[in-house]
Design a protein around this nucleic acid. Structure first.
Lengths: 275, 275
DNA sequence: TGAATAGTGTCTGTGAGACAATATTAT
DNA sequence: ATAATATTGTCTCACAGACACTATTCA
């Protein structure tokens, strides 16, 4: 194993990358957004639903199952570039918020070979993608219930319903981190239910102390709409005055108003970068 | 590229893992702890210093430079297992807090070949490792200065001093994340300065809302000692009463006292798991 | 006009920051 | 006795939670 070389150049000349077991690296992207559901009553606001993009697989393995957009990392690109490229391939748009989530590495997570996958979170205003996603892709609304034991998820794209369950247990020697495990799942490929849950939890946490939520907003929005999106991401109702106080210095008022609902119109705001 | 198979089994039988460019995956571990520095005055408390474990490389590439403990992931183990194995190899102890940090993937980060590295943070009470680390490993105290532009780091193991600089810039489409870049470095191998900075920042953030700091404490400790460790990790002084209020429900009093300093003895506490 | 949301005012309790005061040891 | 840390008390201010109230639109 240990050989002697007189210089780094010489060492590298003799280095054989093929002597290792083949491992592949992929990137999977959890693209999250928020949809508007018209609630019927002309006076009521549209209801907001968390949604994610899935792709129907047309090749093995997991043929005909749904999976996150993903692909192999090329030898000359880093993970961020790979994620960006794959996201562009699926959405035809650029400039989407991207953040590395976690690297999943169960040796059996892919039946083909040893594949390690670095997952990414992408956040976008869904309307930017209208008419741009490929035929084999579809937005699913997320319905999520959490209890002490885990997460019970239902995904719905209007045609098909997907259910899965992920359990959580505290890791050893850790005070706050959960280890997730897929308990029930028959329509999602690979370990992607884990990616989905991890990502939703990450966004929830970061929404508390960063401005990531704004990545899912259009340029102009009302504070009511913004609050709805926060409520979807945080999975809880917020009180109006408290919410307005908290985001006051993150937004700025514009001259425009949103009218048309059967109620008082509201001022449109835009995101203001802090400091 | 697209071939037709009648079943997943048939597809897998024909799958050739060698057709991809070879990529290797490694794990690098940032092992952090806190050292006691005797300050000379018998009355004063020992000063606490943040410290990390580095290994002197005796092979190419980066021969004679210092690096984080690390190694190739085996084909049948996941990243957590790899990190655990490598950590055991370097410290001869088990049961160390481990948490995946980030996956670094610059195509040029290793001159040998394309190597993607998932880094881990490990936290430990340094005294558990007394006399257990190998000869080519050494604890370095961390002296870190941060400003708007980046981090200026000096590492010191009592014999040798290592300096490096890492700059930070806000990423596009991101509100809070920095992109780190090595500006000056001639004694640390690979991109490990980035791992060091990312890890120190991660621990700092998580110290605010989790109990990870306790992983660097012995079973019994005084509140003064605990506060010192928090101060090292958070890089700021804390006020005694506020600190005691905050950690009150995370610790429990024991019968024992710590005596021997030229001042009032203090009660020894232990970590109390919450809820 | 009334249903519905938009937006504001304000009280209250909690908790962090700040500082002061007291307690206790080894030398 | 003194230097040093340990520990507690308490005041104040900021701010989140809670609730009430006013404003405004359009079918």
């Amino acid at each position: 194993m240990k050989e002697e070389y007189s210089s780094e150049e010489e060492f590298l000349k003799n280095y054989d990358p093929r002597k290792f077991d083949p491992i592949a690296v992929t990137t999977d992207i959890l693209l999250l957004s928020v949809s508007d559901k018209d609630v019927g009553n002309y006076r009521k606001l549209t209801e907001k639903k968390y949604s994610l993009l899935l792709i129907k697989r047309d090749t093995y393995p997991y043929k005909d199952k749904w999976c996150l957009p993903g692909g192999f990392v090329k030898v000359d690109e880093d993970l961020d570039e790979a994620a960006k490229r794959i996201l562009y391939r699926e959405t035809n748009i650029d400039n989407i918020y991207l953040e590395q989530l976690y690297t999943f590495s169960d040796p059996k997570r892919d039946p083909r070979m040893r594949i390690i996958s670095s997952s990414y979170i992408a956040l976008v205003d869904k309307r930017r993608l209208d008419g741009k996603i490929p035929k084999n892709a579809s937005w699913f609304d997320i319905h999520l219930i959490e209890d002490d034991k885990g997460y019970y998820v239902t995904l719905d794209n209007g045609v098909e319903e997907i259910k899965f369950t992920v359990s959580k247990t505290l890791k050893e020697h850790t005070t706050d981190r959960y280890k997730f495990k897929i308990e029930k799942n028959d329509k999602i490929a690979f370990d992607h239910p884990l990616v989905i849950i991890s990502g939703i939890e990450r966004v929830k946490n970061k929404a508390e102390y960063t401005d990531i939520v704004f990545n899912m907003m259009p340029d102009l929005f009302t504070l009511g709409e913004l609050q709805q999106v926060y409520e979807v991401v945080l999975r809880k109702k917020l009180l109006d005055p408290a919410f307005r106080r908290i985001i006051a210095d993150k937004v700025e008022k514009t001259e425009k108003m949103k009218t048309g609902g059967g109620h008082r119109p509201s001022v449109l705001f835009r995101y203001k970068r802090r400091k």
